[in-house]
């Protein structure tokens, strides 16, 4: 696997270095929030960064929500934000 590849966020390409989490790749690309809370519609992205807070939940390749900070990005991953 090459050390640099791309994933997409809502169709937009985001660069990744191998071993980076999806959360880190999004944050580095300036995408700082990728979901909103169900009551107040507040934006959420990375907060704890280590799998504790669940703020960074994201849907990848149509799967149910997972913590973006724990998920290593794979080439071609399609991230959809709500």
């Amino acid at each position: 696997m090459s050390d640099a590849f791309q994933i997409t966020v809502d169709g937009r390409p985001v660069p990744v270095t191998r071993g980076q989490t999806i959360g880190a790749a999004l944050h580095a690309a300036g995408v700082r929030s990728w979901r909103t809370t169900r009551l107040g519609g507040r934006p959420r992205g990375l907060f704890c960064g280590i799998g504790v807070c669940f703020d960074c939940l994201v849907s990848v390749n149509g799967r149910p929500p997972e913590r973006a900070c724990l998920l290593d990005a794979q080439p071609g991953d399609e991230v959809t934000t709500s």
Partner: peptide
């Protein structure tokens, strides 16, 4: 809870 606020450990 604003995006951009991280824990120190998260940063």
């Amino acid at each position: 809870d604003l995006p951009g606020v991280l824990t120190a450990g998260g940063a």
